[in-house]
Amino acid sequence: MAPPSARRPGFSRRAQYGRFFGYVIAGAGMLFAVLLLVIAIIDPTGYNALKGAALDATKPITSGGRSVSNFFSGIGGTVGNYFNAGSQNAELKRQLQAARRGTIQARATELENQRLKALLKLAGEGDGEVAVTRVVGSSFDSVHRYATLSVGASSGVQPGMPVRAPDGLVGRVIETGRWAARVLLVSDGASNIPVRLVRDGTSAIAMGDGQGSVELKTLEVGKNPFRRGDVLVTSGVGGVYPPNIPVAIVARIEGDRAFAQPLADPSRADFAMVLRPYQPIADQPLSAETNAALTGTAQ
């Protein structure tokens, strides 16, 4: 005989009503939660105060055991290195060559840039860093690729600021608490970064795939401009990321598609720098004069 259901409340009217209202509340709560999600889609930074407070509250746990996690993430790497020594050696040699090429190219670009900037008297606003900090945690059990920094609004960090490590770009701040901030990593599926191929200056967009690498999309049709070992740097288009921060190195070509590995590994980077947005003015509404000029030309 099948056991009697433990959930049947018996003949008590009160228990039956109680159970019924439980379902009503659950249904209403689900609708409310869907509404919250829709609001989050329309206004992604709308809950910053609430989520920032939660970030602050959980920060002590997160930053407390960072050294332990370094130890654990080190184990996997060490064992892997032992088995992959040969192929890793070849890979490193190849990367070194690519890096050499990249350095030469970078030097040439830098010279050219200096010349052009002097010519145009143009310089990006907001050079310099806001804060130097550590990456202390990440979202490791969902489709999102977020990391947590141990600085927040009290150090001047605001949503939208780019974050870089010594090796390259890490991502962009999306939520801030008083003492902690959450970063959308380069490899998150929602991250789009305008990049430039160091070798020949081809513009592309590096789009994260959610599992640690990025796919490169370019406007050129036909020939795939990328080769293995090519280095990509930010182009400064869009005004969030300052130009010439290394982003990724091309790892694999599949026909028309190219996949690259981000250069900064947030799990290994000791420090992360929060930078000012390259041209914060780009987000602002147009000034009165510009508006007048635009409407003037339209008439």
């Binding site: 746990i61 202390v136 945690g137 990440s138 490791f140 059990d141």
Partner: peptide, 13 residues
């Protein structure tokens, strides 16, 4: 979830 694990691919349940 707030443990200081920094991962670039989802693996932990």
């Amino acid at each position: 979830d707030t443990l200081p694990i920094v991962a670039t691919t989802p693996l932990v349940p």
